Amino acid sequence: MLYGSILRACRERKGWNQEEMAHRLHVNQSDISKYENNVKEPPMSLFQKWALVTGSQDVLVAFIAGMEGMTILSTILSTVGTAIVGGFINLGGLL
C-alpha cells in the first residue's frame, strides 16, 4: 500500500515541515522522509501516533477500513482548500 502521500498530506494539513513532525514523533527527519516516500513502512503504532498528533484520526480509521487512497487524500485536501485545475486535483507534487 502506498501510504506516503497520505502521511505527507496529514502533516502538511497541520502546516508542519518534516523536522517538526520528526520532533513530535521522536524520530529522525530522515525517517519521516522515508515514510512519506514509501521507502520505509512505519509500524502501526507510529501510524497511530502520526494520526493523533496531526488530528487525523479519521484518516487512520479510513486506512484501516481499507478506503482507497485517493478518497482519503481527497478528504484531507478538501479541508485545506485544494485547487482543482483542469479536472485534476493539484496535490503539490504528492502524486
Rank of each mutant, 00 (worst) to 15 (best):
M1L: 09
M1C: 06
M1Q: 13
L2T: 14
L2S: 14
Y3D: 03
Y3N: 07
Y3W: 15
S5K: 15
I6N: 09
I6A: 02
L7P: 00
R8E: 00
R8D: 00
R8K: 06
C10V: 08
R11T: 03
R11M: 01
E12I: 05
E12G: 02
K14N: 00
K14T: 01
G15K: 03
W16D: 00
N17K: 13
N17C: 06
Q18A: 02
E19G: 14
E20D: 02
E20A: 11
A22D: 07
R24K: 14
R24T: 11
R24G: 10
H26G: 07
H26L: 05
H26A: 00
H26D: 08
V27M: 15
V27N: 05
S30E: 10
D31T: 12
D31Q: 13
I32R: 09
I32N: 12
I32S: 06
S33H: 13
S33T: 02
S33C: 07
S33Y: 10
S33W: 06
K34W: 10
K34T: 00
Y35F: 11
Y35P: 06
E36M: 06
N37A: 01
N38I: 00
K40P: 05
K40L: 11
E41D: 05
E41F: 07
E41Q: 11
P42T: 04
P43L: 05
P43T: 12
S45H: 01
S45M: 08
Q48G: 07
K49F: 08
W50Q: 06
A51Q: 14
L52I: 15
V53C: 08
T54P: 04
T54F: 00
G55F: 09
G55I: 15
G55Q: 11
G55H: 14
S56T: 06
S56V: 13
S56L: 11
S56C: 05
Q57D: 09
Q57Y: 07
D58W: 07
D58E: 03
V59Y: 01
V59I: 12
V59W: 02
V61G: 02
I64A: 04
I64G: 00
I64D: 08
A65G: 04
G66M: 03
M67I: 14
M67Q: 11
G69I: 07
G69Q: 01
G69P: 14
M70P: 15
M70V: 13
T71G: 09
I72G: 05
L73V: 06
L73F: 15
L73P: 06
L73H: 03
S74P: 03
S74E: 15
I76L: 05
I76D: 02
T79S: 05
G81P: 15
G81L: 03
G81I: 03
T82Q: 06
A83H: 08
I84H: 10
G86R: 15
G87K: 12
F88Y: 15
F88R: 09
I89C: 02
I89W: 12
N90I: 08
N90Y: 06
L91F: 07
G92A: 04
G93Y: 11
G93H: 13
L95T: 01
